[in-house]
Design a protein around this nucleic acid. Structure first.
Lengths: 335, 335
DNA sequence: TTACTTTGCTTAATCGTTTAATTATTGAAT
DNA sequence: ATTCAATAATTAAACGATTAAGCAAAGTAA
């Protein structure tokens, strides 16, 4: 049998009303002037029966579920896995539980997840929004639901966000390559209007412009829905096509990874023939024969900030804030 | 304002009772003989007000939260991240949501997570149990709560489990190394009584015994709480210490990774001087200069099976089942 | 006409908790 | 003796949904 013990069971056992038990177990015995003797007996009974409050009933009554809904692209992607872990820890520290979902950059999956989380009355959302989900996010904001966007955000939507200063990241990475003497630097990026990607592209572009290398600007664009194999093939083809390319900067860790497979297949020498700067970090970067230079995101800071901003929103704070955290350019052998 | 729309709002708008609205929106209009005209008006009103059922209220009434509690070691560990993703997909497919927690192989964190999930009335648990949590699991079983253990299990506890056939995995991996001509094969494993680790060790040991290599049996034991740095240092020290070691088999992906860092630092030649077989798979294995041979776990099968077994339990099935899925030995250049 | 069925809807209990409002008792003060 | 305050408890509504049970009104059969 499900021996779920309720306040009623304790009340019956002690011979008092349910309300009294509730008061005592919520530490309101002073405020509500409950008799000393009764307090003792209630506490004893609760321990004896191993009472555990029913969070569901509490939520229904109180309106708060102490739950955060986390929506990422894919929890299996180490970038989001690590972020999820940090968010989890920070949430738990504050008495919250996390429910999560992966949307695969898919508008419909995203919608379904948001809907599910709404059914479940999450107190707030932390979302890495997929392309085209602008109105989904706007709808949440409209309903006055606490939302914090991470990794990317929509400039036109009044939602708080915690992201990387993406422009600065690729701007510096590109400058670094230029300083190393590379002249023909190309970028591999996803084809998406999402703000973080556009900013990363802009960082690359502006750095080249700054050094009068406008004619060198070239972006290998990968479609989101591409399979790994297709991505590798495309990068390989593009590299082969270009005669004078001498450096590549990647816009995400998955793209970096695909690029490394391509480069390995082509047998190009890094950093002599091709300079490389990766993104996000990945253990694989360490084992590439020329350990990779890469743009490192401050994941712990991003995760913690996201949770704290969300909790502020949940607690009534209504100002919208945008955090653009700074990257760290980890320079090693590949550039 | 929180414009949460309830059945009551619809009922008021249409001018009928709450019950009728509930019947219609749950598709019981036939069974409950609701008038055609009213059905139409209720459905319209529901759409117009954008009604979304309150899952919390449903749960309280119905007793089921349609939620699965997932407890792993660390969601940031790609092994568990990938598994979580598969579990998520399978859960969603069945109308369930996943709440997760990382216990870091810590008894107390594990206990706190289980408690939290109990408060939240999860319908069932999928747990990769930490060492020493035997009684926590036993207590859940005692309370007749649906539980499925993954990755490891406790032989003495009557809980269903979905694991790898760990013995077979390392047994074959070791045989493979022997067949390749390696004579002095050592293992790197975590020091834990947990069943999966003991089985992996046993596989290694039995294979050596089978080939009369009893004297070669040696296990480099790593403490769970060791930092990455300490682990690498220890492995490095142990390898240096042994004069004739010529192959290493690792018991997890994190250990493999640490080992690769050590081996890189030592400058040992793989596979000539040292044969290697890793565990679980990791992109980094592909970029090690001698792409790693490794024991691959059938993650999709494990995740799906775990969810399905759990759903069976939730739906009243009471038989305890143990699945030991088979590995795939992915042989490449390191052995 | 009377009795019974069918149709279409409402009432009210329930899940477990919180909490405002109320009641009853005792003690102290006037 | 009467009033007021303090103490210690209970009652009942509310959160939002589900669902068994009940009740009219209309239709059908004898």
């Amino acid at each position: 049998m499900k021996n779920r013990v309720s306040l009623k069971d304790i009340a019956n056992k002690v011979g008092v009303s349910i309300a009294l038990v509730s008061y005592v177990l919520n530490g309101k015995e002073k405020e509500k002037r409950v008799g000393e003797e009764v307090v003792k007996r209630i506490k004893e009974a609760a321990k004896e029966l191993n009472y555990q409050p029913n969070q569901i009933a509490r939520s229904l009554r109180g309106g708060s579920t102490k739950t955060i809904g986390l929506i990422v692209t894919d929890i299996a992607n180490p970038f989001f896995g690590q972020l999820a872990r940090i968010i989890e820890d920070e949430a738990v520290k504050n008495g919250y539980t996390v429910i999560f979902g992966s949307c695969d950059e898919d508008i419909f999956k995203s919608e379904r997840l948001i809907e599910t989380f709404l059914y479940r009355q999450v107190d707030g959302f932390i979302i890495a929004p997929a392309e085209g989900t602008n109105n989904q996010i706007a709808a949440l904001i409209e309903k006055k639901l606490p939302v914090v966007l991470i990794d990317r955000y929509f400039p036109e939507i009044k939602a708080s966000s915690v992201c990387l200063n993406n422009f600065q990241a690729t701007f510096e990475a590109t400058n670094h390559l230029i300083k190393q003497g590379y002249k023909h630097i190309k970028m591999v990026a996803y084809k998406t209007s999402l703000n973080h990607m556009q900013e990363r592209i802009r960082g690359y572009v502006e750095a080249l412009i700054l050094h009068n290398l406008n004619s060198e600007i070239y972006i290998i664009e990968i479609l989101r829905k591409s399979l790994k194999k297709e991505t590798e093939d495309l990068i390989e083809k593009e590299i082969k096509k270009m005669e004078n390319i001498d450096a590549l900067i990647f816009a995400t860790n998955s793209l970096t990874l695909s690029g490394l497979y391509s480069i390995n297949r082509l047998g190009i020498k890094v950093p002599e023939e091709l300079g490389i700067v990766g993104f996000d970090g990945n253990e694989a970067f360490d084992f590439f024969y020329a350990p990779l230079s890469f743009v490192e995101q401050p994941l712990p800071a991003i995760g913690r900030k996201a949770v704290n901003v969300l909790l502020d929103l949940i607690n009534g704070q209504s100002d919208i804030v945008h955090y653009n955290l700074e990257h760290f350019l980890n320079i090693r052998n590949s550039s």
